[in-house]
Design a protein around this nucleic acid. Sequence first.
DNA 1: CCGCTTCAGTGATAAAGTCACACTGGACCG
DNA 2: CGGTCCAGTGTGACTTTATCACTGAAGCGG
Lengths: 202, 202
Amino acid sequence: MIRHSILDKLPDALQEDVLETVKAMSLPQGKILFRAGEPCQGLPLVLRGTVKVQMTGAAGNSIVLYRMGKDDICTLSIGCLMTGYGYRAEALVEEASEAVMIPRGLFDRLMDQSAEFRLGVMESYGRRLDDLMLLVEEVAFRRMDERLDEWLQARTSPVLITHQELAVELGTAREVVSRLLKELERKGRVKLARGRIELTGL
Amino acid sequence: MIRHSILDKLPDALQEDVLETVKAMSLPQGKILFRAGEPCQGLPLVLRGTVKVQMTGAAGNSIVLYRMGKDDICTLSIGCLMTGYGYRAEALVEEASEAVMIPRGLFDRLMDQSAEFRLGVMESYGRRLDDLMLLVEEVAFRRMDERLDEWLQARTSPVLITHQELAVELGTAREVVSRLLKELERKGRVKLARGRIELTGL
DNA sequence: CCGCTTCAGTGATAAAGTCACACTGGACCG
DNA sequence: CGGTCCAGTGTGACTTTATCACTGAAGCGG
């Protein structure tokens, strides 16, 4: 069953067109949707689940750039599609997902014939750009302890994550996360266990 | 005279449409095209000159996100146009420029009626996204001395810039730039003067 | 030439990143 | 069921970067 907010708004003729062309893909957790350097096959639409997009530096350290969820569009792919250059980041399925791949030809047709589709794509682009600008500012200027705090506040206890994974979320080194967390534990703000952070209120 | 690569490709009817609607703006060096928080009036097309887009953190430190030059589109504006939220960054005219502002209605019409225009917009978006992803990686993982080196290598001696401006280019503090430059001078790689860096080979 | 403003240099200290290595909880295996 | 292994974690030592506070120097306008 293919349902995606951007497809729902299409006129019936185009919707049929889409349904004939694309096939839904099941993406198990851990699956890599694309890797850095790979060419782009089409525009993925996420039907359900979440996919994280991350980038790896020369020294092997990674940072999560943003996430895609239900009804999202992998806008990043459009650029690759247009220019023919490979992806610069990689996409990892976080929660088991379903997606469809819109090939180049169909994408052009949709852009041509549906103002709603165009709007959806533009909005998605705007959001990504915004996300990335915010991220640049965070990484360039904000203190790590603040960012860690914020990250923790935004979820519910207990958080099941390793220090290494958390380091990738924040774009820092594992040791830095370990030390900051230990400090928080000394202050009584969290309780640490292997792969698990319990938020013990204030 | 209004000439912009993305307009040149339009069919004659639309070109006339554009010429009737927009007026070229002269942007003197130092002029601020938009500030953070301001709402977006339309899509600026840069006809000539260069405009830098930068962002300022809470503590007052800034970083240059990217530049726009001749035939560029201020893609960032589209997102603001769509969502109605204000700009997150500010745009500063670096070299005296000329630009035209495409209002919302005309933008929609162009997107609707010209595949070339759409292609131009998509390409521009792709490039910005790419720029920003690269920047995130740089800021998050690369060493400042390397980045400074690279930045210097990419231009011709003498470079006329203050340490403060250079710090904004790299997204760091003025003192850091001063120290790194002094170090380079000790190594004989540059010669420093007020507002001026001479690259002495090697 | 004087006084002001902008630019640059630098010490002290704190935060963050890197490197190296020790320890440990738990899974798996014989 | 104890032993082995390994991902995950803790930590010391050191380097790099950021921040704060201040000094001095260059250039400009009068």
